[in-house]
Amino acid sequence: MHKIVRTDTLAPSMFLMELEAPKIAEKRKAGQFIILRIDEKGERVPFTISDSDTARGTLTLIYQVVGKTTAQMSALRVGDSILDVVGPLGKPTHIENFGTVCCIGGGTGIAIAYPIAKALGGAGNTVISILGARTKDLLFYEDEVRAISNELLVCTDDGSYGQKGLVTEMLKQLIDRGEKLKMVVAIGPVPMMKFVARMTKEYEIPTIVSLNPIMIDGSGMCGCCRVSVGGATKFVCVDGPEFDAHQVDFELLTKRLATYRDKETESYNRYKHSKEECKIGRG
């Protein structure tokens, strides 16, 4: 059992959970993830480790409520527990001093880009971060990312905060002003990663993306998370989660992510309905 020691609401439907997992906190490196199962009837869901605190023996997870399990997580309070947490899983990000790097986080991807940007900065890189969100309310971790970046660009789709536009436009600005980017790390919704990859390919800037397919075990035994990279089938949980963005088949990833869309909706609706009934009963 892993006790929850802190929860926070970062933005509408965007939450933070800090939970006890001393062994994982000690071993984990940037880019790695865990798989958790809330309770006996729960599913196994992967989450990137956004941060860890070895002194407190804790991990920080940041997640968006998109379905039953994440909704259930957001209803948990400090003192509650998560039944199973396994990790650290996946390969750590390859960190070295490249020179100037650009880390792009879109939506929940900000939480995944953060530890990578932090590690790259720690290795002596000049880190330029780009954060993007649909609208001002959905933006989070701005201060945290600023603290570990040499420069920060923020944009929103609707212009309600920072510059108006998409992360690709921010990246274009950097390239246009002559920034010699040695590497781009792009993490966010699949379309965002796809468009960043398309742009950096044109400018021949090496680009890494962190992929988020459906997973079960996370240790390479089922192939549920398989993707196509450079024409070869790879298992994201053991071969990734990070891959060369210019080699990834994003269409396939999108389609495989939709495999259980109907069932996910069914499960989420059932959960919401049970919560409502519960409230009526209490009222």
Partner: peptide, 18 residues
């Protein structure tokens, strides 16, 4: 088989794994 046996997907949606 892992979905069905370990995660009891045959009892979905009572169990969460589809």
């Amino acid at each position: 088989l892992t979905r069905s046996n370990l995660m009891k997907a045959y009892l979905f949606p009572d169990y969460d794994t589809p």
